[in-house]
Simulated assay, not measured.
Amino acid sequence: MTMAWWWQTLISVGVALLVVWLAALVALLVAKPGKAQLTEALRLLPDLLRLLTRLAGDRTLPRGVRIRLGLLLAYLAIPFDLIPDFIPVLGYADDAIIVVAVLRSTVRRAGLDAVRRNWPGTEDGFAALSRLTGLRG
């Protein structure tokens, strides 16, 4: 007896999602930040969230960048994580790593000046953000 096509499709989609999740897990393990970096990132969190919101609403940025930032904000708002929180270090670091990747992408497409223009915090905070994310002009 052959399996119904919809079962095959459902299993194929499930396997594809598992493969993508495993690839993301490996990428996060490779990019794992140190404890000092996570502590500094947590101090910047309120300003960082305001920055992401401002960048997503900045009409001078390319549409693709704003869409990416909007998707990032939506990902941060949902209660499910790519890596479950019970996994030591990575469970809490996955959001930070994804934010860094999106910010780097934003700087590549829109420039560091757009990030600096929308930064709501202090110059010291921006310097810390630049150091943590590797943002360079």
Rank of each mutant, 00 (worst) to 15 (best):
M1R: 07
A4R: 04
A4C: 07
T9W: 01
T9A: 06
T9Q: 02
L10S: 11
I11Q: 00
V13Y: 13
V15W: 14
L18A: 13
L18W: 11
V19F: 10
V19Q: 13
W21F: 00
L22V: 12
L22Y: 13
A24S: 14
L28S: 13
L29G: 12
V30K: 09
V30D: 06
V30G: 05
A31W: 13
K32V: 01
G34M: 08
G34L: 06
K35V: 12
A36V: 04
L38P: 02
L38H: 01
T39C: 14
T39A: 08
E40L: 15
E40H: 12
L42F: 15
R43F: 15
L44I: 07
L45K: 14
D47W: 10
D47Q: 11
L49C: 08
L49D: 13
R50A: 12
R50I: 12
L51I: 05
L52I: 02
L52P: 11
L55W: 01
G57F: 01
D58S: 14
L61W: 04
P62L: 01
P62Y: 03
R63T: 09
G64F: 01
R66A: 01
I67H: 03
L71K: 10
A74Q: 09
D81I: 12
L82G: 08
L82Y: 13
P84E: 10
P84A: 13
P84K: 09
D85M: 14
F86Q: 07
P88F: 07
V89K: 03
L90P: 00
D94T: 05
D95P: 02
D95H: 08
I97C: 00
I98N: 08
V99G: 04
V99Q: 06
V100Y: 12
A101V: 05
L103H: 01
R104E: 07
R104S: 03
V107W: 06
V107C: 13
R108T: 02
R108P: 00
G111V: 00
G111F: 03
D113L: 14
A114D: 02
V115A: 06
R117H: 15
R117I: 03
R117W: 04
N118A: 06
P120S: 05
G121Y: 13
D124G: 14
G125W: 07
G125V: 11
F126R: 03
A127I: 14
A127R: 15
A128M: 13
S130R: 10
R131M: 08
G134Q: 10
L135N: 09
R136S: 14
